[in-house]
Design a protein around this nucleic acid. Structure first.
Lengths: 121, 121
DNA sequence: GCTATATTTAACTAGTAAGTTAATTAACCA
DNA sequence: TGGTTAATTAACTTACTAGTTAAATATAGC
């Protein structure tokens, strides 16, 4: 599984790792903060490994601060997932009138992008 | 990996399977249609297995029609992914004014849901 | 320097995933 | 009935994943 998007999806395919992301969505946390809810179920090295998976997938960044390793969400990879998902939105936005509303938001988004930031794709 | 969302993410963590979904987003297709682009790279049983993964993850449905097995996208699982993603949208919608626009669409969506369909969560 | 705290690395095991080839099932057609 | 097409199942191999325990590294504070 060499491609980045596959790596990201694989990282998300685990409830422990998703719980860690959920925790990080509330704010920065170091490894032992993130480990705390799971230490009944698994060892600390297991937590370290999960964090390495998240980091390699580009979902978090880990920095150094004394003996702690503060982690935070890194949005890029999630954005890639969101962009991929976008192609399928019409399939889950089931009602027809919602589809119309959806198309409007897409157009609004495109315009906003064109004006302010040059984004890839 | 017992939970459904993990199963869905795992199914999406493979470029072959995502390509199959992309094909199905253009319309129904049977197994050999879906296999065609990959038969240089893998055997037909491998394709069958990929489709089984997608089916078990709730991403496609397979029906019977004579000796063919027409497949089509099943949006439910993708919707679950989208719902999960929603909690993180603010992290990848990086610019502050976009965040404002995002909040408006969330409110609009909430209202639309309340009026028309009773959805979970 | 010594010790406690935070985290990672090493070495290993068990289970799962993705692929293979060969054989099998199922439906159609002549 | 026999052949052809479509798809799956069986049995197996290889590689990866998630976890383990034990040992190592790094930093802070006395």
């Amino acid at each position: 599984m060499r491609d980045r998007l596959s790596q990201t999806f694989a990282a998300l395919a685990d409830p422990t790792r998703r719980a860690m992301l959920a925790r990080l969505s509330k704010g920065e946390a170091n490894v032992s903060d993130l480990a705390r809810p799971f230490l009944k179920d698994m060892s600390l090295p297991a937590v370290t490994k999960h964090l390495q998976v998240l980091e390699k997938a580009g979902l978090i960044t880990k920095t150094r601060e004394a003996q702690w390793r503060p982690c935070k969400l890194k949005p890029g990879a999630l954005k890639d997932v969101a962009d991929w998902m976008e192609a399928y939105r019409m399939f889950w936005e089931e009602s027809f009138d919602r589809l119309g509303a959806y198309l409007e938001t897409v157009i609004a988004k495109k315009n906003a992008q064109g004006k302010k930031h040059g984004r890839k794709k």
